[in-house]
Design a protein around this nucleic acid. Structure first.
Lengths: 190, 190
DNA sequence: GGAGGCGATGTCACTTGGTGTCATCAAGAT
DNA sequence: ATCTTGATGACACCAAGTGACATCGCCTCC
């Protein structure tokens, strides 16, 4: 038998979510999280660069999925359509985790520090999508704005999705937000 | 004569910018900033809720100006045009502070914590603009997306503006970003 | 003009996030 | 059997941030 119980990182993540849910983010110390996971504070910081990060390890997966969708977009699609192609795999992944996403969103909503972290993750995501667009030959400025627009659409739809009960609504909500963005930016009167 | 030197907050802000510029954000302690301003750490935290905030007290002014522009927009303008009306007073204000903006931007660019703070300030700004739109009768969803789009345009243009030498270019750069966004979201092929 | 309240600042002790460094010890390699 | 490796613990330490109380010019009121 191994010297330590397996999946230290997973245990830390579970313990953290539980404690944040039970008593709030601020009222929970890293030492408490580590203790519940059967580890020490020092080990927590070996897995997560700071206390916030324990809630955001999934963002890498989100980025991976989105870029996968982007890569699968047809060669002749417009920049925004390429970005929007990333929404398919993303919607699929989240649909299966509605309950978890809601708890997590509730914790984040109650704490500005965590919102900051979420925003910079989205910013990094937009940067990665932009890079993928540039790689496909899209001009830098169009790439930034398309990527940002896509991420904003995702973020708005996500907020709606966690506020209602149907896990399957995510894809539709994203389409609605995208349509709304298109409608709103359609030039008519300046 | 008064018991204390005047403008404690201003002295703290100046000292902070100087020290961040000289030796970096991380390498500067709050105690150092306070000492250079002739105050104590405790007083620093009476003026600023945390170390980052000393760089962001101007964001309230930005929001005020933007909302002023929004209020001045014609009643029949489209949502995005209303948001874009905020760019006028904002461009005017920044144009006179190009040097300061560059130094500050350089400090922020070198530090993820500060980028997080900047992003949440922009998010709050978007929220305020959204509220102003809703006040004018714009539907909630259109309001969120217009406000977010406008703030993104500002952010992208700002990044370009601080990277080049002409202080007067800000208004033009914002118009270009806005045009690019419109072009990119114009539906053609889906 | 003296008494007292007010407000900005200082002092000090304390908690917690985060880090550097070295020790520990099972598992696998040689 | 010994060596090496890698995950963890132990411990000391620094800096951000906070609560509680002290200080003392200035202003007001009688």
């Amino acid at each position: 038998m191994s010297r330590w119980k397996p999946d230290a990182q997973g245990r830390l993540m579970s313990a953290a979510i539980e404690l944040f849910d039970e008593q709030g983010y601020d009222a929970t110390t890293v030492a408490e999280i580590a203790e519940r996971a059967g580890l020490t504070k020092r080990t927590f910081f070996r897995y997560f660069s700071d206390k916030r990060e324990v809630l955001f390890s999934g963002s890498h997966e989100l980025q991976r999925l989105w870029l996968e969708g982007v890569a699968a977009a047809p060669a002749d699609a417009t920049p925004l359509a390429i970005v929007a192609a990333g929404l398919d795999p993303v919607a699929e992944m989240f649909t299966e985790r509605h309950d978890f996403a809601r708890i997590r969103a509730q914790i984040i909503e109650a704490n500005p520090e965590l919102q900051e972290r979420e925003l910079i993750k989205l910013q990094k995501l937009a940067g990665a999508i932009k890079a993928a667009l540039v790689e496909r030959g899209v001009a830098a400025n169009a790439a930034i704005l398309s990527a940002q627009a896509g991420v904003t659409v995702f973020h708005v739809a996500f907020a709606h999705w966690v506020e209602q009960d149907d896990p399957d609504a995510f894809r539709r909500l994203m389409d609605e937000s995208l349509a709304e963005l298109r409608s709103v930016t359609a030039a008519s009167a300046a």
